[in-house]
Amino acid sequence: MRQQTLRMRTRKDTIIGWAFIAPQMAGFVLFVLLPLFSVFLYSMQEKNLLFGTSVFSGFDNFVSLAKDPLFAKSLVNTLIFSAGVVPLNLVFSLLLALYLGGGKGGTRFVRSIIFLPVVTSGVAWAIVWKYLLQGGTAGPVNWFLDLLGIAGPNWLFEKGWAMGSVIVTRVMKNLGMNVLIFMGAVLNMPGDVIEAARIDGAKRFTLFFRIKLPLLMPTVMMVSIVTIIGSMRVFDTIKLMTDGGPEGSTMVMVYYIYHQAFRMFDTGFASALAVVLFLIVLALTAIQWLGRKRISYYES
């Protein structure tokens, strides 16, 4: 009788547990798994969004990618954008977290200023910076440079400056979130280990590279993975600030997917692009995850 009661109670707990996670699972299936499956399916079709036609074409879209010069250009631009955003974001967010975690003067003010862009709308952020970086002396940035006797470039409409301008504004937009994550890790570092290193004579740089950085490496790995994924799927900043220009110098892969799907209405080709981007991000994430034990302080 007691065993039957326990089984009934266990069954009831199981049903309650499934009831709690059912909405989340339903949302995951409807809004993640099904769209992901549809992208893979559409990538093997000649599908036109404008005319509503759909013909199975196998791997023809992927073959066309290899012959498309804009695909190669968008891939290179995406890698350049990520190579600029990720190191800058990691370095500055870690340095700011170490400063703020030290409890020095003005930390509350600095924390507020750093985190303010995170809660600001991405659309508003991009529009404001597009105004600030206007060419000539119309934009406040060039107006200030003109006061110093420096002729500022047309930041968003010159090939040599557009990508760098977008990278810097993107770094400033997302810096606060990584600072917050790193601050949690900094504040949870074992104080006795750091104090023992100081007593043994470890100076500032030795203390950072030999003690603090190894302790922070699990957090660095997690933040780097999230930042890489975010940089590979950037869209709003590119769309609103440069629209992929000038001459395609800021056309990243996500923007090229949008261009093919909603301007050229070639949904099949756009889906093939999305599959390639998904595989690239998956490969980069897997490489980082598999290599975590070699560069992480923790073995598990």
Rank of each mutant, 00 (worst) to 15 (best):
R292N: 11
I225G: 00
I238N: 01
S296G: 14
V281N: 13
V275I: 02
V275D: 02
A270N: 12
F278T: 12
G230W: 03
S249H: 11
V276Y: 07
V275P: 01
K212I: 08
W289D: 09
I229Y: 02
Q288P: 07
R263G: 10
L282K: 09
M241F: 14
I280F: 01
V234E: 08
I194V: 12
I211C: 02
G191Q: 15
R198Y: 05
I194P: 03
L273H: 04
G245Q: 15
M222S: 15
R210P: 06
M232D: 01
R210G: 01
R210K: 13
G268L: 05
A196I: 03
F208Y: 11
A261K: 02
A274Q: 03
Q260M: 12
M251S: 11
L277T: 05
I211T: 12
L279F: 10
T227K: 10
P214C: 00
G248P: 08
R210I: 03
T250A: 12
I287N: 10
G191N: 12
I211Y: 09
G245L: 13
M253Y: 08
L215P: 02
M264Y: 14
T285A: 07
V252S: 00
A270T: 14
M253W: 09
I211Q: 10
Q260V: 06
M217W: 03
L279R: 07
I295S: 10
I229E: 01
V223T: 06
G245E: 12
I280K: 00
G191T: 13
R294A: 15
M222I: 15
K239E: 13
A197R: 08
S224G: 10
R198G: 06
E247A: 14
